[in-house]
């Protein structure tokens, strides 16, 4: 009797969440999955007929009459994954030492720093990217300062290059990497570092054998949180990259907003989702393997 009552209470409590996820998360996902197998309508939308060439265009079984296979799509995906991975790596290299530094600050300064790092969330991404445009352009702040101090004589050509895209992505994603990383570093028991050195481990050995594994959950968490939106980001490549290097996010956006090919956009989205899911599962497995040792 008691158990049934508990079940009932639990079910009641979980119903709103289930409904919410079902309607706002699962349903759109199912629609995209469905659309990816339908025929594109001439003026957008879909026609309700099965159509596998959305995937055929991407993976190579298109008939070259109705649809044409082009390796370009997988190349764009690979390029986007590469940029996302680079973003993760740079964010990690940037945030890891800073997280240690911040966790050692006096409480007041630490709070200030954490507030500052979340500050970008208070303004729109587009506005912040345009600010970077003003910084990076040839007559921008960066070049003015560098020329002013005599470091360079000609303006640096950063804007509208892949370097600007990476810079922008790292800038956008750094807070997402920093927060989980900081949390892991802050929770790291300093006594473990001392114990390791006390037992004869050098600083490098201590880092590799104790600090890194102990903060791995934070690293993986940050990496996943940065990687996923980086793969699909299309605003940064457009604004700072001059839209010259197509990313998978641009491609999807374009299918919906200029090519009027919803099914193809859906198929591309499904592939991105599959890749992201694979990365997610991979890192969860890695965390579990390490976490098994942690438990």
């Amino acid at each position: 009797m008691a158990i049934r009552r508990q079940t009932l209470v639990l079910a009641t409590l979980l119903t709103p969440v289930t409904l919410f996820l079902g309607v706002f998360f699962l349903l759109p996902l199912l629609i995209i999955a469905l659309f990816s197998f339908l025929t594109p309508g001439l003026y957008g939308g879909v026609e309700w007929a099965f159509y596998h060439w959305n995937y055929g265009r991407i993976f190579g079984w298109a008939d070259d009459i109705i649809e044409v296979y082009e390796p370009i799509y997988l190349q764009i995906l690979a390029r986007s994954l590469g940029f996302a991975a680079l973003t993760v790596l740079l964010c990690l290299l940037l945030c890891y030492p800073v997280a240690f530094w911040v966790s050692r600050l006096p409480n007041r300064w630490r709070m200030l720093f954490l507030f500052l790092i979340t500050l970008p969330f208070f303004s729109s991404l587009i506005v912040r990217l345009y600010a970077w445009l003003l910084i990076l352009k040839p007559s921008g702040i960066l070049n003015t300062v560098l020329i002013g101090v005599g470091a360079i004589s000609e303006p640096l050509e950063i804007l509208y290059t892949p370097a600007a895209v990476v810079l922008g992505m790292v800038y956008v994603m750094v807070p997402f990497m920093f927060l989980p990383l900081y949390s892991a570093v802050d929770n790291l028991d300093r006594a473990l570092i001392e114990a390791s050195m006390d037992l004869g481990a050098t600083r490098l050995q201590t880092f590799l054998k104790v600090v890194l594994p102990q903060t791995l959950p934070g690293i993986l968490g940050g990496a996943v949180i940065v990687f996923i939106p980086s793969v699909g980001n299309f605003i940064v490549p457009d604004v700072l990259g001059g839209a010259k290097g197509l990313m998978i996010g641009n491609l999807v956006e374009q299918q919906f907003l200029s090519a009027r090919n919803w099914p193809f956009g859906s198929a591309l989205s499904m592939i991105v989702m599959a890749v992201v899911l694979a990365v997610l599962l991979g890192s969860t497995a890695a965390a579990k393997r390490k976490g098994g040792q942690n438990a």
Partner: peptide
């Protein structure tokens, strides 16, 4: 440095490496 001293410590919190 600590790691070169022929001295070892038992810490108050034990400081065991939880991942090992």
């Amino acid at each position: 440095p600590p790691f070169r001293r022929p001295v070892n410590t038992v810490f108050q919190s034990y400081a065991l490496f939880s991942h090992m």
